[in-house]
Each structure stands twice: as structure tokens, then as C-alpha cells.
Nucleic acid binder design. Structure first.
Lengths: 202, 202
DNA sequence: GCCGAATATGCAGTCACTGCAAAATTGCAG
DNA sequence: CTGCAATTTTGCAGTGACTGCATATTCGGC
């Protein structure tokens, strides 16, 4: 196989190949779902397009949904690390707004991929349950990170988990609003939502 | 079959039988999951214990998870109706606290069943994704109800959806907190959470 | 008691997902 | 470069969720 451009970071050939395979599976899944819709795609086809066996597919992802969503442990850790950092005058909620908005926004590098991902994932209503299920992982990772930042024992107070859960719910609500033909642009709505939350809901 | 005690409310035998079957399936599912755990129970067994064919099982519930969770459209409507009502000086958030807490609390009649349900559902981590998926239905129903109460066009403003989503997230966060061995009792934590939200998070 | 409609069932089939054991690949030491 | 051990891939066989369809049963009104 051709040695590739983006060898990301680390060590041995083994690790690199695993990353490549994982990514290939995720991209294959996105392609196929975009072409035909989630229900009409089989794990066999995804594996085939990625050039591995069906069995190997399940060595990388526990379910078809997970392959399409494709959140990696690294991404999770990177978001958690970002939240753990205490940026000058930012409240936890402000940090969460920045980080969660960043997860949605097409960032500098992966621009098109991120945008495509977003379009495909949100365009498939049948993925909604899996997506919110995936949010549990995100919530747990971010909660732990915020607890470290606040220097409290894990689970000692509700504060951290509540803040994270509410922030994620706010973003989800904006997305849902968007999909139901709601008013306003997503970015702007998210800003408004966080303002409302900081001001106190009634 | 023996004519039963609680014939609930309405009309024909047909409707009553459907309710009975639905309930029987839900109870059978709860029983079996309590005995053996969700993964070790098959839809065939649930159907058998409820006295119907496997095929009929899927006429009532779209998935094994749904059968265990067992939320009915009637329940949804009743919660929505409760939220739609404008109770004296209650803010929307206060109404939501009351209604969502009521969904968890073992109510007057079904006391034991509600408690059992709660224990079983929350005791099965593998059901967590399905549970949050189910929350989407609840969120949609409550959002529509709140929009009626506020007399706004559906989807016109973010307000309703945001409030509902945040309220549900708060309850979920308290449950999650509880399950991770967090401090405090559930009821009390929910109260605190809603107070924090009304006061504004940071 | 009889007919149209709703409901229950059986059957065959697809596909997600798993455990297991054999084969292929990789990293490493000699 | 060569064999060796660990890791990864793969094939295979099996289980079980879920669906469409055709058929039988049951219900409600006449």
C-alpha cells in the first residue's frame, strides 16, 4: 500500500495501520450511507469497501451505527483535555459552549469531512437514538474532565455533571430545532441558548 | 381468559384486549429482565410468557428494548396535557420539574410497579442508549405541549424546546449521578438541579 | 348467524453480531 | 535474514432480532 501523507503522530506500523483501517471503515460507512441511506447499507458492504472482512469490521466497531458515527477515543480525550484547562476568565459553561460548538463547526483542517459528517449524521433520523446514546460517552468524559478542573472528587457534587448535561442538551436542542425547520442559524441559536441558560431559565 | 379488575376506561373489547396484551408483554419483559438480565432474554420468551406469538410481539413493540421500556402513547399524551395546562403561578420550568419528577416517583396507584420499573430499567446499563433514545419522544411531545401553552407557532422560537431539553437533561444527570454512587437522594438532587438552572448556570 | 374489518399467527428470509480456531502479519532477538 | 511470539485478520458456524407476506382467527355491527 502507498505510504500516505498524514501519518498523524506516533509509533509503529501496527498502530498506524489500525488507525488507517478504522478511518477507512468510517469513511466507507459515510459514503455508503450518503449514497443509499443507513437502512440500505450492510456491514458486509462497508467492510468490503474498506478492504477488510466482515469479521474485522466488528473488531473495530461494536455496531453499524458506531461505524457511521465513528467517534474515536482520541477525539474524546482531546475534548476532555480542552475542558480541563482553565482558560483565563472563562466559566465552565463558556468553555463548554466553545468546545461543543467546535465539535460541530467545520474546523480548519478537516473542513469538508466534518461538514459532510454533520450533514450525513443529521440527515438520518434513524441514527438519532444512536447519536444521543453516543452523547452519554461524551458526557461522561467531559464530566470527569470538569471535575478535575474544579478539583472536586468524582461524583461528590452534582454541579459538574449537571453543567455538562445541560450544555449538551442545549446544543442538541438547537440541532433538533434546526431540523424541524426552526428559525435562525445554528451557530447563532447556540449562542442564544447558552445566554439563556447563563441567565437562568424559567 | 378471566375478566379482570382494572378495565381502565373505554369502549370495546377489542381495545381492552390490545391494552391487556401490551401490558402483559411489558410485564413479561420486566419479569424476565429482572430474572436474567436484558441480554439473556429473547423476544420469543417474552412473547411466550405473555401468551402470544413471537410475531405478535413485534406488532406491539418495534424492538426488544421498547418492550422493556414500555412507554405508551397515552402516558406521553397525559404528560403533555399536564404541561399544556397553565397552573396558577408556575413557570414552565416549575411545571416540568413537577411532571418529570412525577414520572419517576412511585405514584399512588401503581406504586410497586413504578418502583420496580425504575429499578429494573436503571439497573441495566445496556438499556441506557435506548432510554435516552426514548427521551427524544418525550422531548418532542413536551415541546409541542409547551409551545401550545405559550401560544407560539411550532418551531418559531427556540425557547420551548430548549427549556424542555434542559429539564430532561437535568433529571437524567441526577439519575446518572445517583448510579455513579453520587451524593444525596434523587428527589432532593432534582430539586437542587432545577434551582441551579433557574438561578443560571456558570 | 353473517359479513367486513381488525388482529393474530406461521413461515421464510435477511442481516447484525459473537465465539472460536486457523491463518496471516508484525515486531523483535539472535 | 530467520525463526519466534504476540497481535491481527479471517472464515465459519451459529444465535437471535426483525420484516413482509399469506392465512387463519376474532370482533363488532347488522
Amino acid at each position: 500500500m502507498s505510504t500516505d501523507l498524514l501519518t498523524d503522530d506516533s509509533c509503529g506500523l501496527r498502530e498506524r495501520k489500525k488507525r488507517e483501517t478504522r478511518r477507512a471503515l468510517n469513511l466507507a460507512a459515510l459514503d455508503l450511507v450518503e449514497e443509499r441511506g443507513f437502512a440500505a447499507v450492510t456491514t458486509e458492504e462497508i467492510a468490503a469497501r474498506a478492504g477488510v472482512s466482515t469479521r474485522t469490521f466488528f473488531n473495530y466497531f461494536p455496531s453499524k451505527e458506531a461505524a457511521v458515527i465513528g467517534t474515536t477515543a482520541e477525539e474524546l480525550e482531546s475534548y476532555a483535555a480542552a475542558l480541563e484547562q482553565d482558560v483565563d476568565g472563562e466559566t465552565p459553561l463558556e468553555s463548554l459552549r466553545r468546545i461543543l460548538a467546535g465539535m460541530l463547526a467545520p474546523a480548519s483542517i478537516d473542513r469538508e469531512l466534518r461538514a459532510r459528517r454533520r450533514r450525513i449524521l443529521l440527515g438520518e433520523p434513524s441514527l438519532a437514538p444512536a447519536l444521543v446514546g453516543n452523547n452519554i460517552r461524551i458526557e461522561n468524559a467531559l464530566t470527569a474532565a470538569l471535575e478535575r478542573r474544579l478539583a472536586v472528587q468524582p461524583g461528590a457534587s452534582l454541579e459538574a455533571r449537571l453543567t455538562v448535561a445541560v450544555a449538551i442538551a442545549a446544543v442538541r436542542a438547537c440541532i433538533e430545532h434546526q431540523q424541524n425547520g426552526g428559525s435562525g442559524r445554528l451557530e447563532r441559536n447556540i449562542d442564544q441558548a447558552f445566554e439563556r441558560i447563563a441567565a437562568g431559565l424559567r
